[in-house]
């Protein structure tokens, strides 16, 4: 599903970062470990198609990302990849339901209200469907962000530090939800984190070291 080889990225002409080669098969769940500044987020953005102009090769679902035009890359990202960011940022002007609708709308997919209801129910958010996002608790907001990421049944889910701000109980809960959502559609799951608590949940790991 994901193949990375000889990958390097230049922040500026003199500052570059190199990444180890790795490959992830479909449906596998990986941890991307490393200290702050080791390039976890950069790697995630490169593999997720948020960052372009890399050196080497990044192939996702047998597509070399550098060969896609910007618009094609946007479309590819929308349809194949779901993101969960550390700040589980929701669009505050919209309701929970509208936030979820944005996901298929922006990816150019048909909006399936039944699917939205299902995903919300699975995550225990059924009664929050019409709520404004600023009335949600942090835990609920995180679940909406997860719902948004998995709604399009993406082939790959990237999570960037999803648990760093959570206590143990919520950390366990979120990781369980992520694993469950990923397994449901055989999505590949990659979690970038420095949170040691996750090691017990996911055994396959890619270790980055600050260079």
């Amino acid at each position: 599903m994901i193949q990375v080889s000889n990958l390097a990225f230049r922040y500026s002409p003199s500052v570059a970062i190199r990444f180890p080669d790795f490959s992830v098969a479909r449906g596998q769940h990986f941890l991307l470990l490393g200290d702050s500044g080791s390039g976890k987020t950069t790697l995630l953005h490169l593999v997720g198609g948020l960052l372009r102009n890399y050196e080497g090769s990044v192939s996702v679902d047998s597509t070399e990302l550098a060969t896609l035009s910007e618009t094609a890359l946007d479309r590819f990202r929308g349809q194949k990849i779901g993101f969960i960011f550390q700040r589980n940022h929701l669009l505050s002007a919209l309701s929970v339901e509208q936030n979820l609708m944005m996901s298929p709308y922006l990816a150019g997919l048909p909006i399936d209200n039944g699917r939205i209801a299902d995903v919300l129910a699975t995550l225990g958010l059924a009664e929050k469907r019409k709520s404004r996002v600023n009335t949600l608790s942090q835990g609920q907001a995180q679940r909406v962000a997860i719902a948004r990421a998995v709604l399009n049944k993406p082939a790959i889910i990237f999570a960037d530090e999803p648990t760093s701000a959570l206590d143990d109980k919520n950390c366990d809960r979120v990781i369980a939800l992520l694993l469950e959502a990923a397994s449901q559609h055989e999505s590949t799951l990659i979690i970038a984190t420095h949170d040691q608590r996750l090691k017990s949940h996911l055994t396959q790991q890619i270790q980055l070291t600050a260079s």
Binding site: L50, T71, D74, F83, F85, M102, L106
Partner: peptide
């Protein structure tokens, strides 16, 4: 941040 999130969900420039 809204804009960036929308781009990550597939919105074009």
């Amino acid at each position: 941040y809204d804009m960036a999130i929308m781009r990550s969900m597939g919105a074009t420039r």
